[in-house]
C-alpha cells in the first residue's frame, strides 16, 4: 500500500490525494453499478421462480448477460422530450434522482477501516442526502406535463415525507443506544453486551432490543424506495407508470438505476444500523466484509420477496400506516428506550 502511495505521489505530485480519492470513488461506484445490473436480473429470476416461470434465460447462460443487453438497448434508444414539457427540468430530473443515490455511499463503512469518508455525523449526512432523492421524482412528474406523471409525483412526495418521519424516529433510537452519529461507531457499539461476550454476537445486535424499530425501519425503508407494496408512485395498473411515464432511453434508465442503487443503499444501512454490519454472528468466526454483503443480500431478497407477495397498498391505507401506526409506535418506543437506558436494567453501558 505504501509503495502504491509513493508511486502515485511520484507521478501526480501535489494532486495525488485528489486522484487517490477519485480512484476510491470509482472503486465504490463501478461495483455498485454492476450490482445494480445484476439486482435487476436477480429480481426477474426470483420473481419468475416464485410465480412458477423461468425468468430471463435467452441471453447467455441462465440469462446472465440480459442486464448488459438491456443497458445497451436503453443507451441506443432516443431520449424523447415531450413538446410541451419544461425542457431543462425534464433533463435535470433523472440526474437529481441518481446523484443522491450515489453520493450517500461516500460515508457507508464496509469494514471499520474501509470507508471513503469517516465523518463524525455520517448518519445525519445519509439522512440529509437521501431525503433529496424525492426531487428527482417530483420534478420529473411536473416537467413531463402529463397528468399521470404529475399524479405519480404528488403521491410519491406525500408518501416519502410521511415515511421519512417514522424512519428518522427509528434511527434516533439507534443513535441513542449507540451514543454516536458515526456509522463505524454504531456498528462497534453492537459488538458489546452480555451475548457478544459469550460468543453469540447476533443476539447483541440492535435488531433484538430495538425489534419494533427494526420492523418499522424495514417497512418504511421499502416505502421510501417506492417499492411494492408501496409503489403507488408508479402504480402501473392505476397511473400507467407514474412519474417516469414520459421518459425513454437513458433518461428512463437513470430512474431505474437510482431505484436499484437506493435499494442496495437501504439494505446496507439496515445491515449497519440493526444487523451488526460487518460483525460476525458467532464468536468463533472472524468479522469481515463478507458478513455485510451476506446481510445486504438477505435484505435485498426480502424486497424482491415483498414484491412477489403483497398486493399494492391503497393510498389511504398507506397514509394510515405511516401516520397512525408507525408514528405512535416510534414515539412510545423512543420513551421506552430512554427510560430503559436510564434504569438499572440498562444493557447499554
Amino acid at each position: 500500500m505504501d509503495a502504491l502511495m509513493n508511486f502515485g505521489a511520484g507521478i501526480f505530485g501535489g494532486v495525488w490525494p485528489a486522484v487517490w480519492t477519485l480512484l476510491k470513488i470509482i472503486l465504490i461506484v463501478a461495483p455498485l453499478l454492476l450490482c445494480v445490473a445484476y439486482l435487476t436480473w436477480a429480481e426477474r429470476k426470483v420473481i419468475g421462480y416464485m410465480q412458477v416461470r423461468i425468468g430471463p434465460n435467452r441471453v447467455g447462460p441462465l440469462g446472465l448477460i440480459q442486464p448488459i443487453a438491456d443497458g445497451l438497448k436503453l443507451l441506443l434508444k432516443e431520449v424523447i422530450v415531450p413538446s410541451s414539457s419544461s425542457k431543462g427540468i425534464f433533463i435535470i430530473a433523472p440526474m437529481l434522482a441518481i446523484a443522491p443515490a450515489l453520493a450517500a455511499w461516500a460515508v457507508v463503512p464496509f469494514t471499520d477501516t474501509l470507508v471513503l469518508a469517516n465523518i463524525d455525523a455520517s448518519l445525519l449526512y445519509i439522512m440529509a442526502i437521501t431525503s433529496m432523492g424525492v426531487y428527482g421524482v417530483m420534478l420529473s412528474g411536473w416537467a413531463s406535463n402529463s397528468k399521470y406523471a404529475f399524479l405519480g409525483a404528488m403521491r410519491s412526495a406525500a408518501q416519502m415525507v410521511s415515511y421519512e418521519i417514522a424512519m428518522g424516529f427509528s434511527l434516533i433510537c439507534v443513535l441513542m443506544v449507540s451514543n454516536s452519529l458515526n456509522l463505524v461507531e454504531i456498528v462497534n457499539a453492537q459488538d458489546q453486551g452480555r451475548f457478544a461476550s459469550h460468543g453469540l454476537g447476533f443476539l447483541s445486535w440492535n435488531w433484538l432490543p430495538l425489534l419494533p424499530m427494526f420492523i418499522v425501519y424495514l417497512i418504511s425503508g421499502t416505502a421510501e424506495l417506492n417499492r411494492a407494496p408501496f409503489d403507488v408512485a408508479e402504480g402501473e395498473s392505476e397511473i400507467v407508470a407514474g412519474f417516469h411515464v414520459e421518459y425513454s432511453g437513458m433518461a428512463f434508465a437513470l430512474f431505474f438505476l437510482a431505484e436499484y442503487a437506493n435499494m442496495i443503499l437501504v439494505a446496507a444501512l439496515t445491515s449497519i444500523m440493526f444487523l451488526g454490519g460487518w460483525l460476525s454472528p458467532v464468536g468463533f468466526l472472524p468479522d469481515g466484509i463478507i458478513w455485510l454483503f451476506a446481510k445486504m443480500s438477505i435484505i435485498l431478497f426480502l424486497y424482491l420477496w415483498f414484491r412477489a407477495t403483497f398486493p399494492r397498498y391503497r393510498y389511504d391505507q398507506l397514509m394510515r400506516l405511516g401516520w397512525k401506526v408507525f408514528l405512535p409506535i416510534c414515539l412510545v418506543w423512543l420513551v421506552v428506550v430512554g427510560v430503559w437506558m436510564m434504569s438499572p436494567l440498562t444493557i447499554w453501558k
Partner: peptide
C-alpha cells in the same frame, strides 16, 4: 450544514414545491 439540508431542502421545500406545483 447538515440540518439545513435535512430540514429545509429535504422536508420544508418538498412540501412547498408540492403546493407551488399545483
Amino acid at each position: 450544514a447538515i440540518a439545513i439540508i435535512l430540514v429545509y431542502v429535504g422536508a420544508v421545500m418538498v412540501l412547498f414545491l408540492f403546493v407551488v406545483m399545483m
